[in-house]
Nucleic acid binder design. Structure first.
Lengths: 210, 210
DNA sequence: CACATTAACTAGCGAGCGCTATAGAATAGT
DNA sequence: ACTATTCTATAGCGCTCGCTAGTTAATGTG
């Protein structure tokens, strides 16, 4: 809009501040990240924070908004859209989650889950729960699409498979937070993907072991 | 010890109070359950609470202690001890978790997980994390025992399978909290058990589907 | 009965919370 | 230079937190 602003210029970058705030919430949770913590992390005073973002919840909302449109926050949707089948997409999602949940430059685990399960403020709990529900919904729809297209057998249960995938992802996030290393999570992802493929294929287990 | 106590008798039952406190912590988390909440739930004043239990953290410890020795808190150990194989034990654990996490007379999900992931008080976080680590350890040991006994093939990865089972359990707990009904969780448990059995058997997938 | 002992109740402390009134500093327009 | 506008810094508000001093109530014991 206005190329030149009139008064004293802002002493910090808004997007950088949002990212720092997001990481703080991600690491410690919504309530446990106090405004005093935020002013320390962002390197600004409380009045500047309130002038720029409104209040604590508005800052949180803005930070989450920036996250859900970033690469980190959309890896599930991208995999579902880009992979040719649901099984391939889930396999990729699980693998990418193992890597992403143990990234050294980010807090461990899934941001939506970490913040969501620790929050007690109703609006925050609801918002995170809805994000999780949305992820489940798009995964369910992807399986359903494969059933409709004949890629998966007619008896397939999309809700079951999506919930299963979601559960594994949530568990992997928890274990990443508990200190599990990337290599272990990748093995877990591999087991989960195998289980997914078997159940999607009809559930029969060909016991070909030793 | 003393059969007769001297002064004014206590107006509440200690074990009942511990159970009520446990349910409050289970439902809302450690920090979010204030001492004022506890006095309301237990029906006693704050000084009585402090005289009987010490402080908030000691009350929490006592409540958790009573839980980890109850039926709810030991279902994993019982299944691992009673079932003939690791696969049978995990199958039972997953099924019982689906039922237990959706019991109508208890808070939803796993107590250790719900409280653990929401807490920020370091001692509480550590304690819950240790309980989770212990569950992972006994599950790992159970798989290892089957490998040693020749029930599972030599190449089996106990840590991988235990972490996978733990991840699914943790995810089921989260989904129970998110409102998933018992029947869906039972289906998820079934998929997970199938995946577990396949990977334990050596990883080969006999594609015998339609 | 009087007394010691133990528990419960009222009231309130210090600390941290989210948030803001007020005053000062830094810019653009005239 | 002067004003208007916008951001920043100090200080502190009301509230809830975990916790406790001081007092009153209910029991067993002599």
């Amino acid at each position: 809009m206005a190329t030149k602003q009139r008064g004293r210029p802002r002493s910090f970058d808004r997007d950088e501040a949002l990212e720092k705030a997001l990481y703080a919430f991600w690491q410690h949770g919504y309530e446990a990240t106090s405004v005093a913590d935020l002013t320390r992390v962002l390197g600004i005073g409380a009045p500047s924070l309130y002038a720029a973002f409104g209040d604590k919840k508005a800052l949180f909302d803005a930070a989450v908004e920036s996250y859900t449109t970033s690469d980190n926050g959309t890896f599930i949707d991208r995999a579902l859209a880009e992979e040719p089948t649901a099984v391939a997409a889930f396999t990729r999602i699980l693998r990418e989650a193992a890597v992403g949940y143990t990234a050294p430059d980010r807090p461990r685990g899934c941001m939506v889950l970490s913040v969501g399960v620790s929050a007690t403020t109703p609006e925050v709990v609801t918002k995170m729960r809805e994000l999780r529900a949305m992820n489940l919904a798009v995964m369910t729809a992807r399986v359903q699409a494969d059933v409709t297209a004949g890629v998966l057998p007619p008896g397939t249960d999309p809700e079951k498979l999506a919930s299963y995938a979601g559960a594994v992802l949530q568990g992997m996030s928890t274990q990443a937070r508990d200190g599990a290393d990337r290599e272990l999570l990748l093995r877990v992802a591999e087991v989960a993907a195998a289980g997914f493929a078997v159940s999607a294929a009809g559930g029969q287990v060909g016991a070909s072991g030793a």
